[in-house]
Design a protein around this nucleic acid. Structure first.
Lengths: 205, 205
DNA sequence: AAAGTAATGTTAAGAAAGTGACAATACTTA
DNA sequence: TAAGTATTGTCACTTTCTTAACATTACTTT
């Protein structure tokens, strides 16, 4: 199954399926169906079946999907059957919240290092991690072989920080700054902007 | 131009266009083009023109788009030419970061009230706001006529909090908990889950 | 054991979204 | 002023995505 042929929009739904399966598992269920998942997520059952079929046959006709098995398979597909070290730039309020956020662990990610350019922040501890100077981004990330980073600095600094990260060899960036960023095409980027979601909804109000 | 006929996916891109225009404006530009915007956002110029044309003719042939004019128009379309009061449930690390986040102001939103169910948190001040008991969600939201809420509580409590919000008359919810939520069809919901973005990217790594 | 029920895997049709091309228009330069 | 350049508004085409339908398979009940 060559990954190149699978639409990106399908890949984007897999983490949502994975999250739903975790919920079902916590509820004590062993088996689910495309219908149940679709109901829960507001997606048609046909779409879920078709999406999964891009990667193999994970269900049993007449029965449905074994939750823990399908979960494992999705974790392998999404490469989160391992834990990725992630670098965080920005140790302000948002950065602190990100480090203390418990939702990364157990879903494939671990904040391994934090940078900031504010001398008052450097050297301070955030939950086990000592904040390093932004000057060390390149050396530290190279040395630690970190491939994923999060940007949680003010908009004005986001592009220059991103440039440093790219230079350091980062391949994927999660950007919390409310600004678009320019990166080489080989670097993947995702944006977390709550206002985009809010404005999308106010259109309908 | 009847709003009902405009695809939701188009609406979803408007906040991104608006954000880009703000960036251009900060850079001191007065005029932009669909080509420049597309370049900046990684979207084709034809798509941007087509999206905007759903709402009217905002550009001038040969010249491009006046940034401040197009910005104003998008703000009107998205209903953010006003400031919406937003209720926040959850005064933990994430809730604190949300209240202190400066990115809502100036983009149409203001955190107007904060709730938590932890007695240790109730009565505490977060940046001008006093944390109220979650028991007051219904009365307070009704009284203040708040229509938008954010959920920043642990996954296990997210659904019950959401139910309360819906009962209080909330129309749009921004959910920070890493879980899907069930709401009546009249209620709009958006999810902020950083792990979904990360897992989307690790697929390609 | 047979009939009934449930759910997948799979295909084809339909719907939606995106792209390319170009006439019309505005500005710029010689 | 005339020619050249830039860029929108717009349409038709192409590609992509979604949905509906159903044969096949597995389980459940009588």
């Amino acid at each position: 199954m060559p990954p190149t042929t699978i639409p990106d929009i399908v890949i984007g739904r897999l983490p949502v399926y994975l999250r739903a399966l975790t919920q079902f598992e916590i509820s004590g269920n062993k088996v689910t169906s495309s219908h149940e998942m679709g109901e829960h997520l507001g997606i048609s059952s046909a779409q879920i079946r078709k999406d999964l079929l891009h990667f193999g046959e994970f269900g049993k006709q007449g029965t449905g999907y074994n939750i823990s098995y399908l979960k494992e398979q999705l974790e392998v597909i999404l490469r989160v059957n391992q834990e990725w070290d992630v670098a965080l730039v920005g140790a302000g309020g948002l950065g602190n919240a990100i480090v203390n956020y418990s939702g990364f662990r157990g879903r494939g990610f671990r904040i391994a290092v934090v940078f900031d350019n504010n001398p008052a922040k450097i050297g301070q501890k955030i939950d086990d991690l000592i904040v390093l100077s932004a000057d060390q981004i390149k050396t530290k990330i190279s040395k630690m072989r970190i491939r994923i980073a999060m940007v949680a600095v003010p908009s004005g600094q986001a592009q220059s920080v991103t440039n440093k990260l790219v230079e350091a060899g980062i391949e994927s960036i999660l950007n919390y700054a409310p600004t678009s960023l320019t990166v080489p095409s080989k670097v993947r980027i995702h944006h977390i902007d709550p206002v985009v979601g809010l404005q999308h909804m106010t259109y309908y109000m």
